[in-house]
Nucleic acid binder design. Structure first.
Lengths: 349, 349
DNA sequence: CTGAAAGCGCTTACAG
DNA sequence: CTGAAAGCGCTTACAG
């Protein structure tokens, strides 16, 4: 006997209509209802109509939980990001939503706060709930990932974790930073401040970008002055503002700023303005980011922009392949970038 | 017989460890494992240890789908918003995540694109997948909601839908707009432009805010000049820029702008700057929003700010009560607001 | 084209 | 304190 009979669950006030109820109403078996609802098997026209009428009549909706329990597939993926407020998380999440929807899969966003334990937790615990995980790693290391029992299919988003076992879609961070600094040098800059938050991870995006900064300087016969590498406690506007304000107060000379995240650049602009420095006349500014704020900043910000939609598409493709084909050689996709020139740099050539 | 036996599902490479496997390994029944895993019932210390060891050993993780199927509760809520790029969606989603996590419930974000059909679809189809729905309505009407088979518990977020049957947490939009306009009048403004995107819905936030605008003007002995109500096609910076640019080109006189969304105000600022109008000297600007951009705009923006965290908290409380207690009188919570004075208005008193 | 049975992985009464 | 059975709502082979 059903433990609930025809009753709704206590307190919910929601009548539960089961496939069985529809079958009874239509005078067919549960299997036939299932066939009609899912378009599987063959169903006679008349039967189909009768079933659909009953579905309509009773307001039947299939229970995805029960369906998923059988399929061992949920048509759901988990997207784990530090948080919607971090860097390009929000726009990237939006792109993933968009593409996933077109493919008929749901997306569950799981914030990790950029904490190692929570990043690992997602990989460990979301198995049953979703077909795969898209993780934007902040604190987790390649060793952590290698130690994980190879569970849920997963794809890393954003940064390369060199020896990690997982598929990765990453920005060409080092190349992008290198290009940005080269660009600034061509614009006449000589002393380029690197402004950003550096995590522990030597493989993280910030480290890659820092390496690019150094290489571009060295290629041009300069060297990376440690005084010009500003490590901020966060990637906020406030952090950018404070770091540049302090640099100005110290009297350290510089003529350009490369900000690793958009908000830092906005803070830097404000500090420069307060100090009466002209941008781009005295100091040029370039920011990593995809932010529409960049266009509306004063002056508008020259930006190193990665194509988040392309990133989202590759990530979903890799994950789908992984879910379908299981383990196998690690795959890696690099996302290119473009420099969008705006008012914060001196146009040239 | 199990259809999978000891095999992993084809292609996934993921070994599935079931409760039954743990039970076998620990030499107990499935029920006992369940007791240990969930902390239900009584379990002897030694048994508990043995079970936990087996769990660890085999890397067992409970399947939440199966658990949910029984409980008819999923500890998951669906948060349906137009999209992360819309208005205050992203920060509100972030707040909901935060609070939900602390309560141990997962949040699935479902973008609706602000389309009526998709908004209704969420309410109809997410029943099995979650315990309740938080919906930020954009296109749906009270009549639509009334016509819905009373299914999933749901709470409306943001705007009041007067005769809707659902619980609501809303901003005091009309009162806020009224206060903002009154504030501008006290700052010496006389002709206050209302800049925003108005949906079809007469009950929407924009309509409420427009009503507040009118009432404040009338209370001060002015009247709402239709030429100063700018209906934008979107709530983007671009739309704000274009609308104000056109108003300036037409030569219509005005000395203040109340923007219904933050980005519109940024666009307006840019148009004013291009036209050489001093802000706040010639034109004062106030924006609805919670945006940290407002602080870093040039000039920084005076904002009407609602407390999104408070809104998120009330929404979760209402939904939890609804899930727990079922149908009953409709509840409604109003979220207050504050005006944050910054550089875009002339300080007074 | 349709049905009766077994199963997905877990929990909930019911017995001991 | 622990177990064997029935059930959650659906689907998947297997028969007809």
């Amino acid at each position: 006997m059903s433990q609930r009979g025809e009753q709704a669950p206590a307190g919910s006030g929601r009548p539960v209509v089961r496939m069985r109820d529809v079958a009874a109403a239509a005078g067919v078996s549960v299997k036939t209802v299932s066939n009609v609802v899912n378009g599987t098997g063959q169903v006679r026209d008349a039967t189909g109509r009768r079933v659909r009428a009953a579905v309509e009549e009773l307001g039947y909706r299939p229970n995805p939980l029960a369906r998923g329990l059988n399929a061992l597939a949920t048509d759901t993926i988990t997207l784990a990001v530090p948080g919607l407020g971090y860097g390009y998380c929000a726009p990237l999440v939006a792109e993933v939503f968009d593409l996933a929807e077109a493919r008929g899969i749901s997306v569950v966003v799981e914030p990790t706060g950029g904490e190692r334990e929570r990043e690992l937790g997602v990989l460990r615990d979301r198995s049953g709930l979703c077909d795969g995980v898209l993780l934007m790693p902040a604190a987790v290391t390649a060793a952590d990932l290698a130690a994980l029992p190879s569970g849920t299919p997963a794809v890393l988003l954003g940064a390369h974790l060199e020896s990690s076992p997982l598929d990765t879609v990453a920005f060409q961070d080092r190349a992008a930073a290198e290009a940005a600094v080269r660009f600034l040098l061509e614009c006449g800059a000589r002393r380029v401040v690197l402004l950003g938050e550096f995590g522990q991870s030597a493989a993280g995006a910030a480290a890659q970008r820092s390496a690019g900064h150094r290489r571009a300087l060295e290629a041009a016969g300069h060297r990376q002055d440690p005084a010009l590498v500003l490590r901020t406690p966060a990637s906020s506007r406030e952090a950018g503002h404070e770091a540049v304000r302090r640099l100005l107060a110290e009297g350290t000379g510089f003529d350009a700023v490369l900000a690793l995240e958009d908000p830092l650049a906005h803070g830097a602009l404000r500090a420069l303005r307060s100090a009466g420095r002209d941008v781009p006349g005295q100091v040029q500014v370039v920011a990593f980011g995809n932010d529409e704020d960049a266009e509306y900043a004063v002056p508008s910000l020259t930006a190193v922009r990665a194509d988040l939609r392309t990133m989202a598409r590759h990530a979903l493709d890799l994950l789908a392949a992984r879910v379908r084909d299981g383990a196998g050689g690690r795959r890696q996709v690099d996302i290119p970038f473009t420099i969008i020139q705006r008012e914060s740099t001196i146009s040239h050539g």
